[in-house]
């Protein structure tokens, strides 16, 4: 479903990605761990078509990111570390707007349903986003991803700055994504959250994927120990 082949990215003399070969299958939730500058966000930005790789290619649902970036975007949804939306529109309006530019035209009931699924209080649906907390904005971001029915979901530090309850809510939704057969690639620093939600974990160091292991029989402490040892 998601595949990178010999993906390489250089910024002048700095190598951000070194021959990254990564495959995430359908229904799999893959957590990318690594320090700042390890290449996690670069990988996500290349998959989003926002960065061009120096060499190599990536494929979403078999479609080349470099060859058909616009086609690839149809299959992708993205939730950044901080979901930034339009403050002069309400949560409902933001969801409707971002759905419409993706080609989806939902009724008011459907929009409310998406927002309810993320746990956003109904009273907040029609309030301007300017008054939202980070967690509430994150929920609208999730609703946008839900409404796109994308096969692949890219998450860049999605729980950063969220309170424990919001993090737990979010983790539950990501798990549901996986159960629905969607592929999730999640860049994160949060080892405990990664272990609780991911099916596989990869550890990146200086642009390389140095570890790849299933989460099934691992505890957060095991992963933490491995992580510290690796980096």
């Amino acid at each position: 479903m998601l595949k990178t082949v010999n993906l390489h990215k250089k910024y002048n003399d700095f190598t951000a990605l070194k021959s990254l070969d990564l495959e995430v299958k359908q229904g799999e939730i893959f957590a990318l761990l690594g320090q700042n500058g390890a290449g996690k966000s670069t990988t996500i930005n290349i998959l989003l078509g926002l960065l061009k790789p120096t060499s190599g290619d990536a494929f979403i649902n078999g479609i080349s990111v470099t060859g058909q970036p616009q086609e690839v975007k149809k299959h992708l949804a993205y939730i950044p570390e901080t979901v930034l939306l339009y403050p002069n529109l309400s949560g409902n309006e933001n969801l409707d707007f971002f759905s419409r530019i993706a080609g989806f035209n939902y009724s008011q009931n459907e929009l409310s349903e998406f927002l309810n699924r993320t746990g956003l209080q109904e009273t907040a649906h029609h309030q301007k986003l300017g008054g939202y907390s980070k967690g509430m904005r994150q929920k609208v971001g999730i609703a946008i991803a839900l409404a796109k029915y994308a096969k692949v979901l890219l998450l860049d530090e999605p729980t950063s700055g969220l309170d424990p309850i919001a993090t737990a809510d979010f983790t539950e939704i990501v798990r549901q994504f996986g159960q629905e057969g969607r592929t999730v690639l999640m860049a994160t620093h949060d080892i405990f959250n990664a272990v609780s939600v991911a099916t596989n974990i990869g550890i990146m160091k200086q642009g390389e994927l140095v570890q790849r292991l299933p989460c099934k029989d691992l505890s957060a402490e095991d992963v933490q120990a491995l992580y510290l040892k690796t980096i």
Binding site: Y78, T82, L85
Partner: peptide, 13 residues
């Protein structure tokens, strides 16, 4: 403002 990435991913064009 940081909405560009999301616009870029969501927008058909």
């Amino acid at each position: 403002k940081g909405t560009w990435k999301l616009l870029s991913v969501q927008s058909k064009s």
